[in-house]
């Protein structure tokens, strides 16, 4: 009796969670558009993510190409951040979170209990939503990664890494005279660029950015976006963003997530001018979000 009641009530819940649009539009069995590329840096196949009993990501498959910026957009709670965190196994740190599926970095499996996350995270760096510099000096913030991974044997080498990383993050000129001051004393935008400098100091191959500009003002945001475009030459970047304009400005391909499903992946221009899926269109035209 009880189980029947649950079974009956389930579709109702699904409807309540969605919006009016859900009634008319069918979910795609597979992602529409072009989720796969030929020379993929990261290859994800059939990713499911569970928080306890609750499934947050449903069977997502996606490729991220070499030296490409892929933007992930979608309404709040659609699972884009969760998906991003699968790519450097940050979900491991969350109690009760389970990730299944195939994730390959340069053809190497990175999802699985036997994979060591320490070298993986050196290859796949991350920048978080809220700037989170360590409560240490600016120098120590950038030098931390090279130090723990043993990248510099001499002080001069470390100094050089710090300088190049800060220069690449466009922060060197602003902080070169106060490297020994706390990183938390910088402005929000500077802190976020410091976090980017910290991430690129270990020369990662991929940088994951989880809404890196959501806590910043428009000027600081513009600087970060500029920086992302520059970084693309050397790094592969996956960025989660709430701002569609930002996605349009910085990315080559855009992936639209909806309620844990990957609905559409296409060239950014295509997504914002002529979306293939009705849900994508509904989102970018602002009918929900």
């Amino acid at each position: 009796m009880n189980s029947i009641a649950t079974a009956v009530s389930m579709p109702e819940t699904a409807v309540q969670e969605g919006t009016d649009v859900d009634h008319k539009i069918e979910y795609p069995a597979t992602t529409v558009g072009a989720p796969f590329v030929d020379k993929a840096k990261l290859r994800m196949r059939g990713i499911d993510v569970f928080y306890g009993d609750k499934q947050a990501i449903h069977n997502v498959s996606l490729d991220i190409g070499q030296h490409e910026v892929v933007a992930m957009i979608g309404p709040s709670g659609c699972g884009k951040s969760t998906f991003l965190r699968c790519l450097n196994r940050m979900n491991d740190t969350i109690e009760g979170c389970r990730v299944s599926g195939d994730i390959q970095l340069d053809g190497e499996q990175i999802n699985g209990a036997s994979v060591d996350v320490v070298p993986l995270r050196a290859r796949v760096g991350m920048v978080f939503q809220k700037p989170n510099p360590f409560p240490k000096t600016i120098y120590e913030n950038v030098a931390y990664g090279p130090r723990i991974h043993g990248l510099a044997s001499r002080r001069a080498e470390l100094d050089e890494i710090v300088e190049t990383s800060l220069t690449r993050a466009g922060l060197w000129n602003e902080v070169k005279d106060r490297l020994d001051q706390p990183g938390t004393g910088l402005s929000g935008g500077q802190q976020q660029r410091l976090c980017i400098a910290r991430a690129i100091a270990v020369s990662p191959e991929v940088i994951l950015m989880d809404e890196p500009c959501s806590a910043l003002d428009p000027i600081a945001t513009a600087r970060i976006e500029e920086l992302i475009s520059e970084l693309r030459e050397n790094f592969t970047i996956a960025i989660v963003t709430h701002s569609m304009q930002q996605a349009a400005r910085v990315s080559q391909r855009t992936a639209y997530f909806h309620l844990g499903n990957l609905v559409e992946v296409n060239d950014t221009e295509r997504v914002f001018t002529n979306p293939e899926h009705a849900l994508t269109e509904a989102y970018i035209t602002g009918r929900f979000g």
Binding site: L120, R121, N132, Y144, I148
Partner: peptide, 13 residues
């Protein structure tokens, strides 16, 4: 703050 832990773990600590 958990953000400090995340930052460090994100660096591969």
């Amino acid at each position: 703050p958990p953000s400090i832990r995340e930052a460090a773990m994100g660096m591969g600590a």
